[in-house]
Design a protein around this nucleic acid. Structure first.
Lengths: 345, 345
DNA sequence: CTGAAAGCGCTTACAG
DNA sequence: CTGAAAGCGCTTACAG
C-alpha cells in the first residue's frame, strides 16, 4: 500500500537502517558516501515515501503530537485565533496538533490524550479550576502543559497584560481631557468575579484611577450579563452613566461596549459625543459597530504561538528557557468611539 | 512507563491476545468466561491502562484520525463553529482530529496527512480549486474527503441552501409590504464572482424576484469590498439606494449589512425606518449591531457534523448511504432591522 | 473455543 | 564506520 522504508531499502539495495538514518538526517548518516545518501533521498521522493508517524512514534517511544484543549467559552473568534497561532508554532517545529473539547470527565480526556501519547497540551479555558483535575494527572504523567489567556502559577502560561491595557486607557482618557470615567464589567452577582481576566482588568482600572485621577475614587459598574439585551435594564445603566456625568467609559469587552453603544444610540445619544467608549479585545465586532470602537487589542495568535513554543521547549528540555508565566503587551487602538474633550475653562 | 497490554497480561496471567480482544470488545471475547473478562477490565482500569492508539493503528493497518484542513478565509467564527461540529462528530465515532492550514504546497500537506495515515479529510475552503491538486492525490490514495459550505460534485459536500434563504427573505419582504428590494454583494470587479456561495445567493435573489415580484427586474448592487470602510464610497452606495427608493435590502453577509447599517446611521437615516435590512449567516455580529440584524442563519456546527459523519460512513463503507452533496435548510431569523411596511393606498 | 506466533513500520542499542 | 537484530505496543491470521 503506502511505501515503506523496506521498499526503499529493497529498491536501492541499501540497508534499511541506513535508509532510516539518512531520511531522518541522523548524524550517523553523515558517514555514508554522498552518492549513497543522494540515491536514498531520490528514490524516497520518487516513490512518494512519507514516513509513518505512528510507527516512528512507537519506535522512538514518544510522539510529536500536541493537544489543544478548549472549553466552550467566550467568543469562538478568540479561540480560533489562538488555535491558529498554536498550529503555526506546532507546524514550524514539526509537531502535529489534535484538538479536543474539555467536555468529558478529566479521566476520559486524559485517556484520549495518553492514548495518543501526546507530548504536551495547550489549554484554553477561563478558569484554572476547570483543568485542575486533568492538570494533576498530566503532572503525574510528566506531560507538560500550558494555559493561554490565563496565567498558570509556576507553570507555562501566557496572558496579555490586561491591567496595563486598562491603565493605558485611563491615561489616554485623562490626556484627552476626560473628567469622569467609569469601568463596566459583567457578572452575575455582586460578588467579585473569579475569572482571572476580569480581575486583572478591574485592578488595572483601580490602580489606573488611583495613579492618574488621584482625587477620584474608582467608579465601577457591574452589568448583569443575562440582562444585557434587556432594553429597560440597559436604559437604566445608561441613565446612571448620564446622571453621573460620565464622559469616558472603559468596557471589559468589545461586546459590552457595543451593547452600550447601541442603547445610547437608541436613546438618541451618540458616541463619542455623549461619552468616549473603549472596548477590549480588538475583536471583529470592534470594527463593525458604528462608530468603530477604540479598543485594547490583544494578540491572540501570538499568545498561542508563545505557549506552544514554551511547551515544546519544555518537551525538548531546553533548560536555558525558564518556565514561567509570560505577559504580552497590549496596545490601545484608537478608532472613532473616543475623542478629545475640550478643556473646561 | 505507560501501562501496556503486556502488563495486564502479566498481572492477570491471561494471554495477551485475549486481553486485547476483551479490551476491544472483539466478538471473540464473548467466548471467554465472564469472570475472566471482568478481571481483565478491572485490572485495566486499576492500572490506568490506555491503549496506545498509534500502536493500534499500525497493528491494524489503518488509523482513526481525521484531518480538518482550512484556509484563512472569511470569519474565523464560522471556521471555528464548523470545527466544533467536526470534533463532536469525530469524537462520537471514535476518531481523533488533527488540524492543518492549507498553506503549504499540496505535496507537503499530503505528506503530512499520509504521514498520519489519515482516514479522511474535511476541507473548509471557499473554492474547489484551492483543494484540487490535493483532492487528486487523495483520490489516488483512496482517502475520502469532503467539503463544508462548498459543494463537491459527485463527492461528499455539505452546504446550506443559501438560495432558498435569500428567496425566503424576498418572500418575507414582499409579505411585509416592501415594494422595492435590492441585493447587495461584494466583489472586486464587475465580473461575476466565482465563489460558490456568492453565486448561490445571487441566483436565489434573482429567481426570488422573478417569482415573487414578477413585474420587477432583479436589482443587484455590487460593493467594492476593499472600499467598504471608505466613507465617501459607502455614502454613494447609500444615496443610490435612497434615490431608487429602495425599502428592503438583502445583504450577502452580516458584515456587509452591518456596514450599510452604520453608514445609514451616520447619514442620519435609521434602519429599519429608512429600509429593512437583512443579513446573512447569523453571526455574532448580527446580534451586536443596533438594531439587531434580521439574518438568514446557517447552522455551521451541523454542517461540520454532517460532512464528518458522511466521511466516516465512507471510510467504514456503509454502502447504504449514497455519497452526494447535501443541502441543509436555513432559517430566516427576524430581529429588529426589518419591519412591516404600511400598504400604500 | 484458546494460545503461541508473526507482522505492522519504524528506531536504536549492539556487535563486528 | 557499517550491518544484522531486537524492540516498541499493538492486531490478527493461523494452528491446536
Amino acid at each position: 500500500m503506502a511505501v515503506t522504508l523496506k521498499d526503499i531499502s529493497r529498491e536501492t539495495g541499501i540497508n534499511l537502517c541506513s535508509v532510516s538514518q539518512v531520511l531522518n538526517d541522523h548524524p550517523r548518516a553523515q558517514s555514508l558516501r554522498p552518492e549513497t545518501r543522494q540515491l536514498i533521498l531520490e528514490t524516497a521522493s520518487r516513490l512518494g515515501y512519507s514516513k509513518n508517524q505512528m510507527a516512528a512514534a512507537i519506535g522512538k517511544k514518544h510522539s510529536n503530537v500536541l493537544a489543544f484543549v478548549h472549553s466552550d467559552m467566550g467568543t469562538v473568534e478568540y479561540t480560533g485565533r489562538i488555535q491558529n497561532g498554536v498550529i503555526e508554532a506546532a507546524g514550524e517545529r514539526g509537531y502535529t496538533l489534535i484538538v479536543h473539547h474539555i467536555g468529558d470527565s478529566p479521566e476520559a480526556l486524559l485517556r484520549k490524550l495518553t492514548g495518543w501519547r501526546v507530548a504536551g497540551v495547550i489549554f484554553h479555558v477561563s478558569q484554572l479550576r476547570q483543568i485542575e483535575p486533568l492538570a494533576e494527572l498530566l503532572d503525574h504523567e510528566k506531560i507538560p502543559y500550558g494555559t493561554v489567556n490565563l496565567s498558570n502559577p509556576d507553570g507555562i502560561g501566557v496572558t496579555t497584560d490586561d491591567a496595563a491595557g486598562v491603565m493605558e486607557s485611563v491615561r489616554y482618557l485623562k490626556e484627552s481631557g476626560h473628567r469622569k470615567i467609569v469601568y463596566l464589567y459583567t457578572g452575575k452577582s455582586e460578588v467579585i468575579p473569579d475569572i482571572e481576566y476580569k480581575i486583572r482588568r478591574i485592578s488595572g482600572f483601580e490602580s489606573g484611577i488611583r495613579k492618574i485621577y488621584p482625587e477620584e475614587t474608582p467608579y465601577l459598574q457591574r452589568i448583569d450579563y443575562s440582562r444585557s439585551h434587556d432594553l429597560k435594564y440597559m436604559e437604566s445603566v445608561l441613565s446612571d452613566l448620564l446622571k453621573n456625568q460620565v464622559d469616558g467609559v472603559i468596557c471589559e469587552s468589545d461586546v459590552l461596549a457595543s451593547a452600550l453603544n447601541n442603547i445610547a444610540f437608541f436613546k438618541g445619544y451618540h458616541v463619542p459625543e455623549v461619552f468616549s467608549l473603549i472596548g477590549f479585545g480588538g475583536s471583529m465586532i470592534s470594527e463593525t459597530t458604528y462608530p468603530m470602537l477604540s479598543s485594547v487589542v490583544q494578540d491572540f495568535e501570538k499568545m498561542g504561538k508563545i505557549v506552544t513554543d514554551s511547551i515544546i521547549d519544555a518537551i525538548e528540555k531546553k533548560k536555558g528557557k525558564k518556565i514561567q508565566n509570560q505577559l504580552l503587551s497590549v496596545s490601545l487602538q484608537i478608532r472613532h468611539s473616543s475623542i478629545q474633550r475640550k478643556k473646561q475653562s
